[in-house]
């Protein structure tokens, strides 16, 4: 058993924070809170720097100053953006409504046909499957049709879930439970793989204990 300790200071910083976070398994403690505060601060710092360089300068200032004649119209959304900031001044808060109105109105209009297309029509289209009289047809097409219809009936709360309607809604609950179970199992495995990743990081990258 040989150790080959990493000489990279950043690796040890990451090990410190990894162990600090795992200390939460014992109980909430200052080390965990420290790691929590650092990640919030670093994340926000990262976002701010990227916002300034890529967004404010890259998507607004540079196009505006280098090609003013064809991009001068960007001044209008910039004024609306400044109107949003008036939310911080109580006397002029109402000005932010124009920017919000533009964003919400255009955003809703932009989303409306796309929601119909992707959220409703595509889902219905994918459910309208031929019912084949075979094992595959039953296991896939038939189950999907029954599952979607019963699931939708379960989510329909305008009619009391009683009688035949309640029975179909009950079938919907079965499908939903299997769906939630599958999602849960999938999530557990994803989290376990992250845990393995962290253990490997400490044992292999920092301690040089593993050669995999």
């Amino acid at each position: 058993m040989t150790f080959n300790l990493s000489s990279n200071i950043w690796v040890w910083i990451a090990v410190f924070f990894t162990l600090s976070v795992y200390s939460f398994l014992w109980k909430d403690n200052p080390l965990f809170k420290f790691a929590e505060s650092v990640t919030v601060g670093v994340g926000m710092g990262y976002a701010m720097v990227q916002w300034f360089t890529l967004s404010l300068v890259g998507r607004f200032w540079t196009p505006l100053t280098t090609d003013f004649s064809s991009r001068f119209h960007l001044i209008i959304p910039a004024i609306m953006g400044l109107m949003l900031i008036t939310r911080l001044i109580p006397r002029f808060t109402w000005l932010s409504r124009y920017a919000l109105a533009f964003t919400m109105g255009a955003g809703s209009g932009f989303a409306l046909p796309r929601v119909i297309q992707a959220g409703v029509l595509q889902q219905l289209y994918a459910t309208m499957l031929p019912i084949e009289f075979s094992l595959h047809g039953f296991l896939y097409n038939f189950i999907i049709i029954v599952g979607v219809l019963s699931g939708l009936i379960y989510f329909f709360f305008s009619k009391e879930h009683k009688g035949w309607f309640g029975s179909i809604a009950n079938v919907g609950i079965w499908f939903l439970m299997v769906g939630f179970g599958a999602t849960f199992g999938y999530t557990v495995m994803a989290r376990l793989s992250l845990f393995i990743g962290r253990v490997l990081f400490v044992l292999r990258d920092a301690l040089g204990f593993l050669k995999i």
Binding site: A111, V115, G119, G151, Y154, V178
Partner: peptide, 27 residues
Amino acid sequence: NSPNMAAKRAIALGVGLGSLLMTLKII
């Protein structure tokens, strides 16, 4: 691919119809 897909699609349809109504209400 089958029962889980059916459950997710029922939820997706509910979300889709809900979003559709919300965008209409905003406009």
